[in-house]
Each structure stands twice: as C-alpha cells, then as structure tokens.
C-alpha cells in the first residue's frame, strides 16, 4: 500500500543506495516499494537509475581541474606589513584612528579594528591581497590638530601586492582639505 510515509522511507532508502550504504535488505525493501508506487518509480527510478544519476557527481569531482591556491598571496606579502601600513597612513594624515571596518566585496565584514595579530593573519592568508579587490573603510572618525571631528567613507583599490592604486571618497567630510589629506595618506601608505 502506498502512503506518504512509505515514500519518505523510500527516499531514505534511495539515498542510502546512492551513497553505497544500503545492504541487501534495504535494497529489497526499496524494490518492494517501487513495485507498488508509480510516483517513486517515475521520480527516483530503480537502483540502476539511482547509480547512473549519482555517478554524475562523482564524475564531476574526478574531472575537476580547478587548482585554487589560498597560500599564493601569503608568499608575496610579509605578514605584518598590512596592519602597519594602515597605521602609517593614518599617522601621516595627522589623524587618530577610532575604528576601521574593512569590508570585502562579497563578505560584509572581515576585519574590525585592524590589530596586529589579526592583520598578520589576514595578510598571511591573503584575504586582503587578492588582485583588484576593493576594500572600503568606513566610519573612520579622526581628530585633527584643530580638534575638528569628521567622518569620511572611502574606498581603496589594491593591486596584487596590496599596494593602493586608487582612493575614492564615497562620503565627504565637508572639508575638501581633510578628504584630500586622507586619500593622499592612504595612497602613500605602502
């Protein structure tokens, strides 16, 4: 007799057959179910059909040619440089960093308040040193010598060595000289 719960059991059995985890008894139970259930026969198919379908995944895996190298960037970038570079840039601007939120194009927030151990890890794993990846530092509040307070949102484009190639002010501080000083410092901070 065909019931929803029998079909659920049949799905579990079919999964076990696909993964090579089904014994004779389970295979027999699956065959029994198929003999009474047209729907499962049509949507899942027999054991041979299950094996044909699942083999596509194994074939795709075996023929995979993509060789990613997470470590490649690591070899090119000294581990501590990244954190210090930001520090140097901000110091050059005569600014006091309150917070830096660096965001990647795909991952919303990767690094908060770049501290040395974290920066070392980021550089070590190449997270921020991939070619042409955009970084955005936002909520960068700083105090100038005149104690003026400003928030500037800017984007920095880095090349494959982590060198800034372009700085764009996304949200202005209201003082052109401050914006220019920030971008100038960021571009020289390498």
């Amino acid at each position: 007799m065909k019931t929803a719960s029998n079909c659920t059991t049949a799905e579990i059995l079919a999964g076990a057959i696909a993964l090579g985890e089904a014994g004779d008894e389970q295979r027999h139970a699956y065959r029994e179910h198929l003999s009474t259930c047209r729907r499962c026969l049509a949507t899942i198919g027999g054991e041979r059909e299950i094996e044909r379908v699942i083999s596509v995944v194994a074939q795709a895996r075996d023929q995979e040619q993509w060789q990613p190298d997470v470590r490649r960037a690591l070899a090119r970038v000294p581990a501590r440089r990244h954190g210090w570079r930001w520090g140097a840039g901000l110091a050059a601007a005569g600014a006091l960093t309150v917070a830096i939120l660096a965001t990647q194009r795909h991952a919303p927030v990767v690094v908060r308040s770049v501290a040395v151990p974290d920066a070392a890890a980021v550089a070590a794993l190449g997270t921020q040193t991939m070619p042409q990846r955009e970084h955005r530092a936002e909520s960068l509040a700083f105090t100038s010598a005149q104690a003026a307070r400003a928030t500037i949102t800017f984007q920095v484009r880095l090349d494959e060595r982590g060198k800034p190639t372009r700085c764009t002010i996304v949200r202005h501080s209201g003082r052109a000289s401050l914006d220019a000083a920030l971008c100038d410092a960021v571009m020289r901070a390498h």
Partner: peptide, 11 residues
C-alpha cells in the same frame, strides 16, 4: 539520505 535523494530527483 533523504536530501541526497531529493537532490537526485532534480538532477
């Protein structure tokens, strides 16, 4: 196993 089976149906 059930999710594998359902994935196979679509595949």
């Amino acid at each position: 196993r059930q999710r594998v089976c359902r994935a196979m149906k679509t595949l």
